[in-house]
Structure formats: structure tokens, C-alpha cells
Design a protein around this nucleic acid. Sequence first.
DNA 1: CTTGAGTGGTACGATATCGTACTATGAATA
DNA 2: TATTCATAGTACGATATCGTACCACTCAAG
Lengths: 154, 154
Amino acid sequence: MTHKPDPRTLFQVFKEIGIIEQLSRARLEARLPDGLIAPHFAVLSHLINRGDGAVPIDMARAFQVPKTSMTHTLKGLAAKGHVELRANPQDGRSKTVWLTDKGRALREEVIQALAPGFGDMMQHIDPDELAQMLPTLIKLRSYLDAARNGEGKT
Amino acid sequence: MTHKPDPRTLFQVFKEIGIIEQLSRARLEARLPDGLIAPHFAVLSHLINRGDGAVPIDMARAFQVPKTSMTHTLKGLAAKGHVELRANPQDGRSKTVWLTDKGRALREEVIQALAPGFGDMMQHIDPDELAQMLPTLIKLRSYLDAARNGEGKT
DNA sequence: CTTGAGTGGTACGATATCGTACTATGAATA
DNA sequence: TATTCATAGTACGATATCGTACCACTCAAG
């Protein structure tokens, strides 16, 4: 049967998630060139997965960050030539974000650089166990996303 | 049988974890008074759980943050009277951190303020499902922690 | 059309994070 | 003891995050 939830367990789940986020981010950033950090890589991956030409405000929402943060991140990527900002023919207020060849290449290189680390991780942790966790993580993320009412500044 | 791990699944796990961390942090900080943020609360909780009189450098390691970040966080808490820094009689280089009554009270208030949100969450997500995830999260965190070699600046 | 509310982007300022460098203390070794 | 190395804390500077304010453009109501 289902028992009363122990808040301590819940707290611990969030605590572990927080630390994992920190450590995995550090791990990723160790493989990124000089001035780039995790959010830059996240943007490149997003553009690969979802396709070119995204509107900055939509990306800010996808990442759950304020639009000013997205502006800052995109400025950094554009300055290094990894993305290109173009006017949005559909809406004069907004822009569209496009990957450059340099940006695509960088994303590929970083993934290659991460591969050995992934391999090592798989030797210490059962991949299936991680995969089984995914649906629960998605539920949790979805709930938190939906419950975040009113605060919707993004 | 266990199949070859799909890197996409792995990526997604880290991505969901990253978003959950962001959203849960925002949720916590919405309940904190003016100038306090998540790391401040984390320190208060740590001192309750592990006991008073901890040494800053040990707390920095526990949280996996650079010692300069811990100095900054403790300075903020001390300025608001939630903790007190005292000399360490065991080691003239270091200090010890002590909760004040104000700090203990604040921690309690915040937990009370979080309770309704937890209750709501439990109505949408099976607590057992979260609890079952915990061992895997701990394994993952432990691995990442151990694998973080050489970078041990903290 | 004109007007007024809503929205996307950015400038700006406050604060957080974190790397580097420095100081003071402790510990090990000769 | 004297010398050398290691460690805890902090000052400082660079950059990231994010809230507020503002401008330009869109869209709907009239």
C-alpha cells in the first residue's frame, strides 16, 4: 500500500537533483571552449533538435529562463559566430536564430568529447536504471512547470 | 536483456534534471524573505541536519561549491543575523558556523510555508514513485562526485 | 485610420558565482 | 627551531542571472 509521504525523502530527492545538476554542468563545461558555458551548448542542441529559425522568446520559455537571460546567451553565441540572428519576417518585433556551420561543428565536437565520459559512466551505472527514472522525472518536471502559476514572467 | 544505452535518453535525463532544479529552486525562493536565496536556505538546513559549529570549507565541499561562494553565502546569512561565525579553537585558520535563534526560526517558517505546495504535489505525483527514484539518483550523484577528478578546487 | 493594450527585445543595475591571488595559520621535515 | 609546503579564508575582478524599465511593433476595438 501507499504510505504517507515522508517530506524528508522528498527534500532529499530535490537535494540530489540539485547536486547532480551542478556536477553534470561542471562536467559539460569542462569540455566547452573558453568563453562558452552550459546554456550556450543547450541553445545549440535545442536548435539542432527543434530546427533552425526559432524565435528567442520561445527558447526562453522552453528553457524556463527570463527573456533577458536568453538575450544575453544569444549575444554570446552570436559574438563567437556560432549562431546568427535575423529579422523575423512574420513579426517585426522579434528575431529568428540560425545555426552557423561553426555552431553545428562545435556542437558535434562537444558531443564527441563527452562520449568517453558517458562510456565510463555506463560501466558504473546501469543505463536501464537511469532510463527507468525518466518517466518520473518528466512527470515531476511537468507538474512543476504547470504549477508555476502567475510567476510566468519568463 | 540490457540493450546498448541510447545517449539521447541519457541527455534527456540530465536535461529534465536541469529543468527540475531550476523550477524547484524558483519555487523555494518564492517562499524566502527578501534578500535570501536557495543557497542560504540550504546552509540553514545543513546546519540543522548536521549540527552547529561546522567549518565553512567542509560546507563548501558538501555543497560542491567553491569556497569563495560559501564565504559569500555565509556573509549574507551573518549580515541578516541568521548565523554567527566564531573562531575555530581547533584551527586558527578556520572558523565555525552557528545558527542563531532567528536562523532556526526562519528555517522552520520556510518549511511550514512549503508544506501546502508539497501536499498539492503529492496529489498529482505518486510519492512512492519519487521515493523509488532516490537510490538511482544517489548512485548517479555518487558517481559524478567520484569521477570529478583533479578538478577538486572546490 | 486611430487608439490603446499586449508582446518581443534590449539597456541597465543589483546581486550571484567562481577563478586568481594573497594572507595567515598549521604541519612536516630537516 | 627553521624552513618549506599545505590549507582556510577573503579580496578582487570577470561574467552570469534576473528584475525593472523602456522602446518598437502588433493587433483588436472603435
